[in-house]
Design a binder for these strands. Structure first.
Lengths: 228, 228
DNA sequence: ATAACGATATGATAATTATCATAACATGAT
DNA sequence: ATCATGTTATGATAATTATCATATCGTTAT
């Protein structure tokens, strides 16, 4: 067993391993693989066979799909302890989306078959999986509906608030996405993401230094995300 | 036990009950309630406590949420054998969406607590729930992304093809949604849904008799849903 | 039967968003 | 250092979509 990844100490313990004992803990621990990815590296490719149940230990990743013309749509951004291979792992045998590292990231890979076996044996684990899957899917769906209602500036504002409050916990942060990726996330063009950012800067709501964003007036930004 | 709803004969057996035996089957059968709803009747109201695990036996329903200004967004349309109370039942204690009957419908209500208990006890059932939840959430997310890419006529075309091929299995069918509801589903205005339908009719692709739609040229409609 | 209401329908116009063109800037490769 | 490439940036214009106004049709209530 990889000593750098001790299941009993792992941060994932609470979420996944908490209810495993004896044999099951051994299976998880001996079967798992930790992997490191550099920013920009591909972790999962759409269309490939699902063998692993993948968890994000550190870093940040994007889930996205690519349409026939090569354009990408970002489905969601996953933070540490989010399931990464979640959406279709129990209903499909191939991924219908790709995952790429937005920051240097570490993933933990468990075998799907082990997860299935254990979920069958261990009801508490199965319920925990159901709960987490429900939560993740719910969040994606509600976010998508929320974004759809908004105008361009509101979408960009929503995204900035998300990073500030849910990922970096600071009014100042480095955007992990390019303007193009932001556009792919919220369904608008790259030019209009740039324009919206410029407008927010002109209005004194943000300061922008390349990828670094400093939110000057969070209240106004929130009201733009809400109504504008 | 309600003789009109015999679990061993129920159409849901395959999906939910297949793996239950003895005590569990008794619990399901004695605890369940079947309800009938007329077209337009509310089945679930956003914000209410989740007590039941609800399944659609017959009819057609819409899942939607209502924003602060009272506007509705339709999340998905559920057909028989779809879970109705699915998305948040394992992660929330209150519904974050409403469900209303689009056609006269019959639902089967199981107690959430029974489901939880049984999923804990019965791994096969838990996996079946995981699989179905994964499938439903996946479909909603991919559909939403698909619709977002399209222009107005393409969205309407997509919707018509969905009803024709996945709900009514016929090129001619009665729309279960008003034009306003179609708009709430695909994120456009009512006027533009009507206009798009008129255009499709003018181009000889559809015939429209009020709520009755007859698809004349499915191939063209599909290419509009795909590219236009 | 008629009034009232909501759904469907269409046109004119305004608002929003995308596209195209161009340029500055940064980054990595040679 | 210089080149090539991709990202950020801004403006002009075109395309798309929403809004507002109005009218018809169908249904339900009185």
């Amino acid at each position: 067993m990889d000593p750098s990844c001790n299941c009993e100490l792992c941060e994932l313990r609470e979420l996944l391993v908490a209810n495993l004992e004896g044999d099951h803990l051994d299976i998880i621990c001996s079967g798992k693989v930790e992997k490191e990815y550099k920013q920009g590296e591909s972790i999962i490719k759409e269309g490939t066979l699902i063998k692993d149940f993948t968890y994000l230990k550190s870093g940040l990743v994007k889930l996205f799909r690519t349409d026939s013309s090569g354009k990408e749509q970002i489905i969601t951004i996953a933070k540490p302890f989010d399931y990464v291979s979640l959406l279709s792992v129990f209903s499909n045998n191939r991924y219908n989306y790709s995952v790429t590292a937005l920051e240097d990231s570490v993933t933990c890979h468990l075998k799907m078959n082990d997860i299935r076996t254990m979920a069958e044996d261990n009801g508490t684990l199965a319920l925990s999986l159901l709960k987490n899957m429900s939560r993740v899917a719910d969040k994606i769906i509600l976010d998508t509906l929320e974004i759809r209602k908004k105008h361009l500036r509101g979408r960009v504002a929503y995204l900035l608030i998300y990073f500030s409050q849910n990922v970096y916990y600071s009014p100042e942060f480095d955007l992990p996405l390019t303007r193009k990726e932001m556009a792919e996330f919220v369904g608008m063009t790259t030019e209009n993401v740039i324009r919206s950012l410029s407008e927010l800067r002109r209005d004194g709501i943000l300061k922008i230094y390349g990828k670094t964003i400093q939110i000057i007036n969070m209240d106004t930004l929130k009201s733009i995300a809400e109504f504008g």
